[in-house]
Structure formats: C-alpha cells, structure tokens
Amino acid sequence: MAKRIDVSGLTAYYGSHKAIEDISMTVEPRSVTAFIGPSGCGKSTFLRTLNRMHEVTSGGRVEGKVLLDDEDLYGTGIDPVSVRREVGMVFQRPNPFPTMSIFDNVAAGLRLNGNYKKSELADIVERSLKGANLWNEVKDRLNKPGSGLSGGQQQRLCIARAIAVEPNVLLMDEPCSALDPISTLAIEDLIGELKERFTIVIVTHNMQQAARVSDRTAFFNLAAVGQPGKLIEIDDTERIFSNPSVQATEDYISGRFG
C-alpha cells in the first residue's frame, strides 16, 4: 500500500511569486516525515505540491518532478483527481462537510467517487473511525451532523474521512495546531499506528511533536522575506535534533535565529 515519494528539483509559484525553489528529497514508505521551519517558508506549499492541490489555488504553478513509486505525478496524461485518491490530505483547520452526518462525512470520499459496494460501506466507515480512534465516541450518533463534534473530534473525523479512501500517502498540514494537548496526544498516537499502513508527511511548528512522531525531519528556511523557501536539510529525526549538519538548523531548533 504505502508508496515512496521521490522529489527532484521542485519549484512552485503563486502567479509570478516563487514560493519554494529547487527542492529534492526522498520520503520512505511506512515512515513519518516531519517538515519544520519558520512561518512562510513554504512547508504548506510544498506539501500541497505532493498531491497536486497546489494548482487548485489560482495562479499556482509547479516545475520539477514528484515520483510516486517511479511514476511522475506531473508527467503528461496524469489525472490530478486520481493522484489525490492516492495521496490523501488532512488540513490545519478541521473541515467536516457541514451538510453531512458523521457517517456521511466518512463515507464522502467513497460516495462522491462512486466506487464502492453498498454492503461494504458501513464496514469501511466503522473501520476508518476505529482507525482514527473516534469510533467509541461517535458510534451512537453516526447520524448527527459532523460539525457538532468538538474540534479534536472533528479533526479525527477528517482523518477518518481521509483514510477511508485507502490512500497510499497521507499528508497532514499542522493537524494539531487547533487542538488541546489531550487531543494532540490522541492524534500523535494515531500517527504512530497509521504509519504501519501509510506513508505519512506531517507539517508541524511543534519541535517536541516532530521529535516524538517522526522518523525523519526536513528543515525548510528562507533567506529573507519575499525570497523563495528552500530545503536546508533532511535527515533522521534523532540526528536533526542532536547533531544537525547545518548551523541554521541547530539555531532554529534551539531557538537561536536571526
């Protein structure tokens, strides 16, 4: 299921503004890779190029290659819709569909894509909710609206929705930034379980979180405001946090910068 991501020479623009420049990295299957870096350095932008969500923004343009197990996502004839089915995404702010019940939210990906068997739907929803550690809290109110859950529950609902379509890769953009420590812990535990099945990439501003959940960590930085963001280094998380090879990384992690 899980797939390797191989990025080479990736540059992304918003109109004429170059947001990230010449990024190359490899993300191993069945691992968690964390992106850290100062605000505005292009972590979200880079993450969104990995499932072709970047081009949804008006003026969004990408150069370079993203190989998903040897297939270039930006090659000719590649359908962005199919890419997004393989590479799922969880957003910073929980965004359940307000018109749908909890059940329908989880089933949304399958239903809207139209490829499912009716008899399997309930099973898949239950499995996904269990996978997102939410089943026990919502099993008695599956027909209630998803927006009636707490913020942390909504975020786990969004994770359940993302894993219900069985993607190969799961991208998470600051999934815990709106959550309390307990919900955060629940989601971190969940990430630990999910990495058995998926390739996970997570953006976070929380150093401890990066250290706790990830196997590898990538540090992004930008030379100055208005300059494009760049990948400074990517290495095993332990190394990044104990003995990084670039001075800027150490400064950022230890809180000394500028």
């Binding site: 819709v81 997004r84 569909f97 949304a108 894509n113 929705r161």
Partner: peptide, 20 residues
C-alpha cells in the same frame, strides 16, 4: 476549505460543486 477537503479526497471538481 470545504472545496479543498473534497478535492483532496480525489473528488472531481464538478462533483465537488454538485455534492458539496
């Protein structure tokens, strides 16, 4: 965010408009 949530699930744009 709702449009993006739907698109990120691999739902085509026209279905996103129609169903979300």
């Amino acid at each position: 965010e709702l449009r993006e949530a739907s698109l990120a699930l691999g739902v085509p744009k026209w279905r996103t408009i129609l169903k979300v």
